Amino acid sequence: MTHAPRRPVVGIIGNMGLMNQEYPVHASGTLNSEAVAGVAGCLPLIIPTDPRFVGVAELLELCDGFLLTGGRPNVHPSEYGEEETPAHGCFDRCRDAITLPLVRACVERGQPFLGICRGFQEVNVAMGGTLYPEIRDLPGRMNHRMPPDGTLEEKFALRHTVRFTKGGVFHRLMGAEEVMTNTLHGQGINRPGPRIVIDGEAPDGTPEAIYVKDAPGFTLSVQWHPEWNAAGDPVSRPLFTAFGQAVAEWAGTRRGMPARHLRQA
């Protein structure tokens, strides 16, 4: 019997929630699995992000890369030295306990991750940066939150441009200096971490695309949601394709195959 080649494994960071308003679950949007399997070409594995169940060291060994997903709860402000206020919204301290050290470990090891929305913010916090509790309350900023009404197609519709640094990582990856994206977030980067490179911004100056300077692996992260229409969107597809290539290369090094590192800068 012949066996199909083993796909590289991407750990998809799950979120805590309630099914039917009463049954606790760890879950992730189907769109995340679809993007990982269909575009990145990897095996999606949803991670229950709670230190009672999993540890960072064993996740690093189990998975070849990680998708840091979006989620309604925000990173707790104590993680970047600020006091909790009502504007900071709700939290998931168990996810904080897993993802923040996981990001730092991946950066050190060169293990690939792709950050999305909350995941984008986690990367900044993990690397020593801070967040604004509510972007729309800042002078001159637009409302980046999900529209309260409409279909999913309307909520995930392309709403503003993102301009990348000319000649930068995202410009080279996308083949365009400016693209259109959706926007479904309340918080955003205030002070970037010392190694965080802001490589793309919305028209109001909100950081939208980052990577970690001098990291040996793939660390691209975006504030928008590229998992929506990942196979068909001209911005989402190259992002997930490049991520999948980086994960496959990491998996190859584990099996003794030569690695080809994606240059980020």
Results as ranks from 00 to 15, higher is better:
N182V: 09
P194D: 08
F113I: 11
D137K: 13
D149R: 04
H171K: 01
G175Q: 11
E153I: 04
L173E: 07
G115N: 02
G200W: 10
N182Q: 05
G110K: 04
G115Q: 05
H160M: 11
G167F: 12
V103Q: 04
G193I: 05
T181Q: 01
D96H: 04
R136T: 05
K155Q: 15
E201I: 14
A157G: 05
H144T: 04
I189P: 04
R104M: 08
V125S: 07
P203L: 15
M146L: 14
R159E: 04
P133S: 09
Q187W: 11
G128N: 03
H185M: 07
E201C: 15
N124L: 12
L102A: 07
M127I: 02
E153N: 06
P139C: 11
F164S: 06
T183F: 03
E154G: 04
R163D: 10
G110T: 01
G119I: 12
Q187F: 12
M174I: 14
I198W: 14
G110A: 08
C117D: 01
F120K: 04
V125E: 00
Q187N: 11
R93Q: 07
I196V: 15
R172I: 10
A97C: 08
H144F: 13
G168Y: 09
E178S: 07
L138R: 08
C117T: 00
R145N: 09
T161Q: 13
L158R: 13
L158A: 14
Q121L: 15
R195H: 12
E122C: 10
L114A: 09
G193C: 09
L138H: 03
L158H: 05
P101Y: 10
C117Y: 00
V123I: 15
V169E: 10
G140M: 05
K155T: 04
E122M: 12
T165P: 02
P203F: 15
R95M: 03
R191K: 15
L173C: 07
N182F: 06
V107Q: 06
I135N: 00
N190H: 14
H185S: 07
N143P: 00
I135E: 01
G188R: 13
C94A: 14
G110R: 05
C106M: 13
Q187P: 00
V179M: 09
G205W: 13
E108W: 00
M180E: 12
V179H: 02
G115K: 03
E177V: 06
R118E: 01
L158G: 03
M142I: 11
M142W: 09
G129T: 01
G110F: 06
I98G: 00
E108F: 03
H144N: 00
H144I: 11
V169P: 01
V103D: 05
I189T: 09
R172E: 13
M142Y: 08
T99Y: 02
F164T: 13
F113Q: 03
M174D: 02
H185E: 03
K166I: 03
E178N: 04
F170C: 12
L100T: 05
I98L: 15
K155H: 08
F164R: 02
V179P: 01
E134W: 05
I189L: 15
F120G: 07
P203N: 14
V162C: 10
F156N: 08
N143W: 06
V169R: 13
A105T: 01
M146N: 02
R163C: 11
T165N: 13
Q121K: 11
M127A: 08
G186C: 10
I135C: 07
N143M: 09
H144Q: 10
D96S: 10
F170R: 01
H185D: 08
G115Y: 07
A105M: 02
P192M: 15
